[in-house]
């Protein structure tokens, strides 16, 4: 009976520790979100979205940073998605079982978790140094390199979920493989492919490290991709570490905007991904 009691007591302690671990995880999420809303929502006024980043001591907004982030993210996704989808297609449709596909998959998984600051160094070496100056173009390239592995991974996973009977049926109708993939497999996996792109956008919209020495920063509104461009994460970095209270306030507002965008994107991606699996 005592052995039984000890076992039950041990189990109770173990189970409550597991509960505590989950509470621990959730507490940080709640705390961070509350802090962001508490500190950042005060700055959510129209001026934030219509004015440029100010010099210290005067009022201003984050317009140039928000636009810069949008421009660079859109360009990076436009550049990285096709490459990612095509490479993912190769892995899922052409390369199953081949040595090359194995190596590419392995390398892609490494790139997926590689430190983003190293990507920044790489783009600095191959773009910024030859051009002689920082530019939004370099920033876009750095972000695109981060987009590619995310899209490759989800594309491959999602294409593998497409039932093989669909492929066999359309091949039996006389469609060549390229059309089976483009007309049938892509359509069947559409929600999944969208998930991949959304995840990639969520990933790059908060990336700071690769932009620090590629796109740098800019106090002014800039649409020229050959010049340095402001982005929300870099502005947050600069403003948060500054000694000026109004800059720090703007940094919190920017942080709130980014977090809400990223969380909305990842929740949408998850819902889309789940629909795919259900159907």
């Amino acid at each position: 009976m005592t052995l039984y009691d000890t076992r039950r007591r041990k189990n109770a302690i173990y189970v409550s520790l597991c509960y505590a671990a989950s509470v621990f995880g959730l507490v940080w999420l709640a705390w961070i979100l509350c802090a962001l809303i508490f500190k950042g929502s005060a700055g959510l006024m129209p001026a934030t979205f219509t004015q440029m980043t100010p010099p210290p001591g005067s009022a201003g907004g984050l317009l140039n940073a928000i636009c810069g982030s949008l421009i660079m993210s859109i360009a990076a996704v436009a550049l990285g998605t096709p490459i990612g989808i095509l490479a993912g297609t190769y892995l899922a449709e052409y390369g199953s079982g081949s040595k090359l596909a194995f190596v590419v998959r392995f390398i892609n998984d490494i790139l997926l978790s590689a430190p983003s600051i190293v990507i920044g160094l790489f783009v600095y070496q191959i773009v910024v140094v030859p051009m002689g100056h920082f530019s939004a173009l370099a920033g876009m390239l750095a972000l695109a390199i981060i987009v590619i592995p995310v899209v490759v991974r989800t594309t491959e996973d999602m294409l593998r979920l497409v039932p093989n009977q669909l492929r066999e049926a359309s091949t039996a109708l006389g469609l060549p493989k390229s059309m089976v993939i483009q007309r049938i497999a892509y359509k069947a996996a559409r929600a999944g492919l969208t998930t991949g792109v959304l995840l990639a956008i969520a990933r790059i919209s908060g990336e700071t490290a690769p932009l620090l020495f590629t796109a740098l920063n800019n106090q002014f509104f800039e649409t020229n991709v050959n010049a340095p461009m402001a982005s929300l994460p870099v502005v947050i970095f600069q403003f948060a570490l500054s000694p000026y209270a109004d800059w720090q306030r703007l940094a919190w507002t920017g942080a709130l905007i980014i977090t809400m965008t990223v969380l909305a994107l990842s929740i949408t991606a998850r819902v889309l991904g789940r629909q795919r699996i259900k159907s």
Partner: peptide, 24 residues
Amino acid sequence: PIGIAIELLAGIPSIIYGIWGLFI
């Protein structure tokens, strides 16, 4: 829901952890 909430911790950009860590 709890699984998604925990995974959202991975979605929060690292600069947010930075600013929260430094000031709070």
